[in-house]
């Protein structure tokens, strides 16, 4: 205490700062950095949870490279991203753009669009799973058959299942994106629009030349944010394919699910760790590439 009182004000503040940071630094080291390193180490090991961890060299990575299921899973993971991000951003922008121009019951409409964002992915996965069932159970197929249209195999199909599982994820995310877009639109100074109107520019040109360029920070944020979300999809797939996890024929299995299965169903912890390192790399590369492309333009 005596030591402390002799310190200069700046020094005292430094002591306070480190005091504030002690617990957090401990937390980040123990709960974030150490586990990250541990996962990387584990990816070079072999472990089935019961025995001891043993070194396996590059074996896990070699196996991954030669595993056709992994490449299928890799493709699936990107399909979720490639379909999910553009579709959800276009829909949410169109809605936000028009909602911004509407006053009548504006708050109510906004609330309705936002509502799905607050739901639990697990609960909604089961709701949608019910919708997708064949007749006589599923809502969609009942609707189709009442209109005299043949059934669609939603989940039991190698081509339809992935989009079908993606749909609730897109649906639940729209509300958030709409709110962010609307906040972005509000932040554009009206003077820009006024100037354009005076020049008699069409709405379409205003949208293209003023609104979209000025929304760039918002768009960058949403693209990166939602891409990471789609690359990490798990809850919906897990709950909608409990009978045939990631199926049919692995057509819906994303990387996170493969990790889960490898680790907690086959107990191949090392192999699973190698998959997490791949996931980490993918997320890093995708975010960096997106940031670079979108910032430059």
């Amino acid at each position: 205490m005596k030591l402390y009182s002799r310190l200069s004000i700046d020094r005292k503040r430094t002591v306070w700062a480190w005091g504030f940071l002690t617990v957090p630094i401990l937390f980040y080291v123990v709960i974030r950095f150490y586990p990250t390193a541990d996962a990387m180490v584990l990816s070079f090991q072999s472990w089935n949870l019961l025995g001891a961890r043993s070194w396996a060299g590059l074996e896990n990575y070699v196996r991954l490279w030669n595993d056709p299921v992994f490449w299928q899973v890799f493709r699936n993971t990107f399909m979720y991203l490639i379909l999910g991000t553009p579709i959800s951003l276009v829909i949410s922008f169109v809605i936000a753009y028009n909602l911004d121009k509407t006053r009548f019951l504006h708050g109510t409409l906004r609330a309705l669009y936002f509502l799905p964002f607050l739901t639990t992915a697990v609960a909604m996965a089961w709701v949608w799973r019910w919708f997708y069932q064949p007749v006589p159970i599923g809502v969609f197929n009942n609707l189709l058959s009442s209109m005299g249209i043949g059934q669609i195999r939603f989940l039991n199909s190698t081509t339809n299942a992935l989009p079908a599982i993606l749909a609730p994820a897109v649906w639940a995310g729209l509300g958030f994106q709409i709110i962010i877009f609307m906040a972005g639109l509000r932040a554009i100074p009206t003077s820009y629009y006024e100037a354009a109107r005076i020049d008699g520019v069409s709405n379409w040109t205003i949208l293209r030349e003023i609104t979209l360029p000025l929304l760039k920070p918002t768009i960058v944020f949403l693209v990166v944010f939602s891409s990471i979300g789609f690359l990490r999809i798990f809850d919906q797939v897990f709950n909608m394919t409990t009978n045939d996890p990631g199926g049919p024929l692995n057509s819906t299995m994303p990387l996170v699910m493969m990790i889960y299965q490898t680790a907690f169903s086959s107990y191949q912890m090392g192999y699973a760790a190698a998959q997490t390192v791949v996931l980490f790399t993918v997320l890093l590369v995708v975010s960096l590439v997106q940031l670079r492309i979108l910032r430059d333009r």
Partner: peptide, 10 residues
């Protein structure tokens, strides 16, 4: 499971 799906779906 996959063997049957290949026959039925593909």
């Amino acid at each position: 499971v996959d063997a049957v799906q290949r026959v039925l779906l593909q």
